[in-house]
Amino acid sequence: KPRVVLAPEEKEALKRAYQQKPYPSPKTIEDLATQLNLKTSTVINWFHNYRSRIRR
Results as ranks from 00 to 15, higher is better:
N37P: 01
R55C: 12
K1R: 00
D31W: 08
T42V: 11
V5Q: 11
P8A: 10
K27L: 00
A17E: 04
K21A: 12
S52I: 07
T40Y: 08
P8T: 12
T40E: 11
N49H: 01
R3M: 07
K39T: 11
K39E: 13
I29A: 01
R56C: 15
A17H: 06
V43M: 06
D31V: 02
Y18I: 05
K39G: 06
L38Q: 10
T34E: 10
I54W: 03
Y18N: 02
N37E: 01
E10H: 14
D31C: 02
L14Q: 02
P22C: 11
K39P: 12
L36G: 01
L6C: 11
P2K: 13
A7N: 13
I29L: 09
T28Y: 02
Y50P: 00
T40A: 13
I44G: 02
R16I: 13
D31A: 07
P22T: 04
F47R: 00
P22I: 08
A13L: 14
L32T: 06
Y23T: 10
P8S: 06
V5C: 02
A33N: 04
K11I: 13
R56I: 06
S52E: 14
N49L: 04
R53I: 06
P24R: 11
K11W: 06
A33K: 15
L32I: 01
I29C: 14
D31H: 02
R56A: 12
R53W: 11
S41D: 12
P8H: 01
L6G: 07
I54F: 15
V43W: 06
A17Q: 11
N37R: 15
Y50K: 04
E10T: 14
T28F: 06
R53L: 09
K21G: 10
P24F: 14
K27P: 04
N37L: 00
A7G: 13
R16T: 05
E30P: 06
T34M: 15
T40P: 10
R16M: 12
I44V: 11
V43S: 00
L32Y: 00
Q19V: 07
R3K: 13
L14V: 04
N49M: 07
R51V: 11
Y50G: 01
N45S: 04
T42R: 13
L36T: 01
D31E: 08
Q35P: 02
Y23E: 05
R3I: 03
T40R: 08
I44P: 01
E30T: 13
R55P: 06
R56K: 13
N37F: 01
W46M: 02
V4T: 05
E30W: 14
K15R: 08
A7Y: 06
T40D: 03
R51W: 15
V5L: 07
I29T: 08
A13P: 02
A33D: 00
A33E: 00
Q19P: 04
K15F: 09
K27C: 00
V4A: 04
R51T: 12
A33H: 08
Y23F: 08
N37V: 02
F47Y: 01
R55N: 10
H48L: 06
P22W: 07
Y50H: 10
S52W: 05
N49I: 01
N49F: 03
T34I: 04
P26K: 14
L36V: 10
N45T: 05
R55M: 14
L36D: 01
Q20Y: 08
E9D: 02
K21L: 09
Q20N: 02
Y50V: 13
L38H: 09
W46C: 00
T40I: 14
S25N: 04
F47S: 01
V5P: 03
Q20F: 06
P22E: 09
A13D: 03
F47I: 03
P22D: 07
T42K: 14
N49A: 06
P26Q: 14
P8G: 09
T34S: 12
T34W: 06
R55A: 11
F47L: 03
A17T: 03
P22A: 07
K11S: 12
H48D: 15
L14G: 05
K11V: 15
T40V: 13
N49S: 06
L38M: 15
L38I: 06
Q20V: 11
K27V: 03
D31Y: 14
V5K: 10
V5F: 13
A17G: 07
Y50Q: 12
R56V: 01
A33Y: 08
P24N: 01
I54L: 08
R16L: 09
P8V: 03
R55F: 06
L38D: 03
K11A: 12
T28M: 14
Y18M: 05
I44W: 03
Q20I: 04
K27Y: 04
L36A: 02
E9R: 07
S52T: 12
A7L: 04
E12P: 02
A13W: 04
L36I: 05
